[in-house]
Design a protein around this nucleic acid. Structure first.
Lengths: 241, 241
DNA sequence: CGCCAGCTTGACTACATTCAATTGTAGTGG
DNA sequence: CCACTACAATTGAATGTAGTCAAGCTGGCG
């Protein structure tokens, strides 16, 4: 665990995004997709592009929420902890997702957000988004679309990742991970993190994954990279292939 | 189980809401809170007030999403079913909540929505909301607030209702049910429904509840009404009282 | 009054957790 | 480059908790 306090963000890598927004790698899916270049200019960007290393904390629960982030590359986890000490990962975010949308409506962030890989993102003042969302119909629509996406994902996590036995849960997670990735091989989080997504212990996750490997349903490449045959996995959980 | 097909809604009780919106019982918390009366008039209300009996289905998953509903009284469940046949309740909605917000951004509803009690609601064309949300800053803000609420609730369901052993889950649900109710006694769903909220079987829920009753931590009044001492329950799950 | 659905209880089984020990792996510095 | 360290993953054995199957019970309603 990287011992980073506070925002723990590498500020050296920040720079104004005014020129880069136009060639944004996530232009299609990001918050500002379809926004007229004129509108974009008008915001004359206090937007900052930045990089966050694996293990770093972007922000913590109950911190004052002032910025929204668009995620260009990498994976972050949204975590909440219970008074009893247990931690639960409530969502993973990746390319194209928004981090901390609650900054628009709420005063405080609702999660601990931690980079699971090296992460590229843009930091946008929430105020800016709020102001422009009232003016730009496109931005307004995009924003609602993002809320909707988050909620749909939440529902999936409830139905697919919190229901059924350990085998089903792990398999459903693997399907989701591989389908949300464009390559053959996909990012596979550590066993403890997987456990915190599925409400299982590391040991149970480890055993289940070992079982899938024995059956030839999962191939581990590196520590955090794997490959699966989605069709086979879907048969296991009886989903239509 | 009420054998209702399709929308299964009691259309006899619908009527134009143009006159009633002004005296709406849920005015404070509802979607149109803070909206200028002038704006409200302009919409000259194709909004319909209606009543839905216990057990009736408001709409089903994958149905075309054309209406948003504001819930004035009663409780509805949002359910999803897995290909394996299991059902999972992903949220309960009650007074002040919006049903089917996805109608604004998505083409199809994402859940089966079923009345758990007798329910009063207003049926609003999604198109209307979309159109006005672009124009009225207040409505726009309200709408985002509702998205936010739904997401916060989802997170709670993941962290509190899907983590820990059966006792913890049931107790946390009881706390939530009683805190979200203004009376001493609160609505308590059937054992099967509770099971589908917590990913537990009816038997386990029944046993757990029986245990709480034996310990004097829960008092059953009628079949679907109960009373608890929240402070005591919070001690059980180690939450700050 | 009797029926039925929902709730409860019991006995047994299956499964995940716990605790503990071991192996594997990535990163560090000599 | 290798040895060493720290941490992550794996495996085993014992325990505990929830699931399953089956049988009664209860209360509301025709």
């Amino acid at each position: 665990m990287n011992t980073v306090t506070g925002a723990g963000v590498n500020h050296d890598t920040e720079f104004l995004a005014s020129e880069v927004c136009q060639i944004c790698p996530t232009r299609e899916t990001a918050l500002f997709a379809n926004i007229k270049p004129k509108d974009l200019d008008e915001m004359h960007s206090p937007i900052k592009y930045m990089i966050c290393e694996k293990g770093e904390k972007l922000y913590g629960m109950n911190e004052k929420a002032e910025y929204i982030y668009t995620l260009h590359d990498g994976v972050v986890k949204l975590e909440q902890s219970l008074p009893s000490g247990e931690r639960r990962i409530v969502r993973l975010l990746r390319r194209g997702d928004l981090i901390g949308v609650e900054a628009v409506t709420a005063a405080e962030y609702q999660h601990d957000v931690i980079a699971m890989t090296k992460v590229n993102l843009c930091k946008i003042p929430a105020e800016l988004v709020l102001k422009f969302s009232a003016r730009s119909a496109e931005l307004h629509a995009n924003l609602m679309g993002k809320w909707q996406d988050a909620l749909t994902t939440s529902d999936i996590w409830l139905t697919k990742f919190s229901t059924g036995n350990s085998r089903y849960r792990v398999v459903r997670l693997l399907i989701w991970l591989s389908e949300n990735c464009h390559h053959e091989e996909f990012y596979m989080p550590g066993r403890e993190d997987i456990g915190n997504m599925l409400s299982l212990t590391t040991e149970t996750v480890s055993r289940t994954i070992a079982g899938l490997r024995r059956d030839g349903d999962l191939e581990l490449l590196r520590a955090d990279r794997a490959r699966v045959d989605v069709a086979v996995l879907k048969k296991i959980v009886k989903e239509s292939v």
